[in-house]
């Protein structure tokens, strides 16, 4: 991922590593009041120790308090916020400006991350794993493919976010215009649809097992159900429908 030239920022590697590892737990204190806020403070804390006076100094305490307030973002993109806010705090940027920047950054980091990761990358990796299963892959092959593929994207995104945040400070807005973030969901969506066209039939074929004589009926029933669900979109939760149908079927099967 490239973009505007970046400035190197002098935090020791071990501190960046500590922030990266803490970033994996950024949602550890997620709650309905401050959402990710306290998590952001938790992740930034190793970097804030470099403020004048260290952890006993008033600047450290003021910055930690400020950064632990309400914040929301996609967890994988918090690195952008963490990096840029850490740099701003260490460079002594006016607190009021930091507060404004924090408020402005939250929404884009949430929506961009949700579209790219939850609504694109995760379903893509799932259907690739289903494809491996349908092709006869072993448990290790299916799970290994899913975890390696997914986490390649996951860890890269987190590391890139922290790097770009530290390098650009408050000038990080242009990073959100990165082609991967803007156009990624479109391309990944197309790829997911293509892979799903292969993965769904072969995975389901393997699950059906001995009932292959019923394949015609299964396809028709699934298509009818799919059309109903697709028409209902957000008004219906598929997993709840699955729960209801299976509950009725189980009841029927033990009473018949």
């Amino acid at each position: 991922m490239s973009g505007t030239p970046t400035q190197p920022f002098g935090l020791p590697f071990r501190v960046k590593l500590a922030m990266f590892v803490r970033m994996l737990a950024v949602q550890g204190s997620w709650n309905y009041e401050t959402l990710l806020g306290t998590g952001i403070g938790f992740v930034m804390e190793p970097g804030l120790r470099f403020l004048p006076g260290g952890i006993d100094g008033p600047q450290y305490r003021a910055a930690l308090a400020r950064e632990s307030r309400y914040f929301n973002a996609h967890p994988y993109l918090t690195g952008i916020a963490v990096g840029s806010l850490t740099r701003a705090e260490l460079e002594g940027v006016d607190p009021a400006r930091i507060e404004r920047f924090r408020s402005a950054l939250a929404s884009p980091l949430g929506s961009v991350g949700d579209r790219l990761v939850w609504a694109s990358w995760l379903p893509f990796c799932s259907v690739v794993a289903l494809c491996v299963f349908g092709a006869g892959g072993s448990a290790l092959a299916v799970v290994g493919t899913f975890l390696l593929l997914y986490n390649a994207g996951h860890l890269l995104l987190r590391a890139w976010g922290l790097h770009v945040g530290l390098a650009r400070g408050l000038n990080v807005a242009s990073a959100l215009g990165n082609p991967v973030l803007r156009q990624g969901p479109q391309y990944i969506g197309s790829a997911t649809a293509l892979v799903a066209g292969v993965a769904l039939p072969i995975a389901l074929q393997r699950v059906v097992g001995p009932g292959r004589a019923l394949v015609g009926g299964i396809i028709v029933a699934a298509l009818i159900g799919l059309l109903i669900l697709a028409r209902l979109r957000e008004r219906a939760e598929g997993w709840r429908i699955a729960l209801g149908v299976l509950a009725v079927f189980v009841l029927y099967s033990i009473l018949s």
Binding site: A119, S120, P123, V127, G189, T192, A193, A196, L200, L204, V207, V208, G209, P210, G211, A213, L214, G217, I218, A221, A222, L223, I224, G225, L226, I228, L229, A230, L232, R233, E234, A236, G238, W239, I241, A242, V245, L246, F249, Y252, S253, I254, L255, S256
Partner: peptide, 29 residues
Amino acid sequence: WGSESEYSRAVVVVVAAMVAGGALWKVFH
């Protein structure tokens, strides 16, 4: 359990297929 083996699997597959298809459509339409 009173239902036949192949029907038992088939119901699970139909449910999974329709939910997955509906979900992918919801996300990528």
